[in-house]
């Protein structure tokens, strides 16, 4: 494995009880923002879950850099209805410093999760992953529920990424992927 490479997928077929996505190959190096595009149901989220060990790899292999750390922002994260956890208590869970949060995220530091909107919670989770300590960040449809200002904040965070780290972004918004990604992988429908 190349020294700069963090992750390599070699003809991976992944799924749960049965395969959902077949024969995918790509590599992600430090400093890279890799976009994963494709139609709904193509298995993009399954691929991210295969990387974190939550989905089954039926064939091929996923090669990880030694000691690789991963943060995964799930698609449609469930907003807990009654949990008083503050933004500043959530960010450190992934090693992010609340004091260095993006200006758009900073006002959320002292608000409990149960009083955030779906979009604010989505942005907070993405911020926790991007500002955290993980080498590789997996973002699954991070633009869902975000308004224009929140989208700008997400763009800022992606642009300001430490070159020692890398991101894989799954999105159905082609324009967002083309604007932010250094590479694009198109996944065909299963």
């Amino acid at each position: 494995m190349d020294e700069k490479e963090l992750l390599r997928l070699e003809t991976v077929t992944a799924g749960y009880a049965r395969p959902v996505i077949r024969d995918v190959s790509f590599a992600v190096a430090r400093g890279q923002v890799l976009g994963l595009g494709g139609p709904n149901g193509a298995g993009k989220s399954t691929l991210l879950r295969a990387i974190t060990g939550c989905a089954r790899v039926f064939a091929g292999q996923i090669v990880r850099a030694e000691g690789l750390t991963v943060a995964h922002h799930w698609q449609r994260p469930e907003l807990p209805p009654e949990l008083p956890l503050l933004g500043r208590e959530m960010l450190p869970l992934l090693g992010a410093e609340p004091g260095r949060a993006h200006p758009m995220v900073a006002p959320l530091m002292d608000r409990p999760l149960n009083r955030l909107s779906g979009g604010q919670f989505q942005l907070l989770q993405a911020a926790a992953c991007l500002a955290g300590a993980a080498d590789l960040v997996l973002l699954d449809e991070p633009t869902n529920n975000l308004d224009g200002r929140a989208l700008d904040a997400l763009s800022d965070m992606l642009s300001g990424l430490d070159p020692a780290r890398a991101v894989i972004v799954v999105s159905h918004e082609k324009e967002f992927l083309e604007r932010h990604c250094t590479g694009l992988v198109e996944v065909a429908a299963g």
Binding site: R49, A71, W74, E89, L93
Partner: peptide
């Protein structure tokens, strides 16, 4: 428990 609640595959992923 909080990490697992918000980032369900944090432990398997790391």
């Amino acid at each position: 428990l909080l990490t697992e609640r918000f980032f369900p595959d944090y432990y398997t992923g790391n």
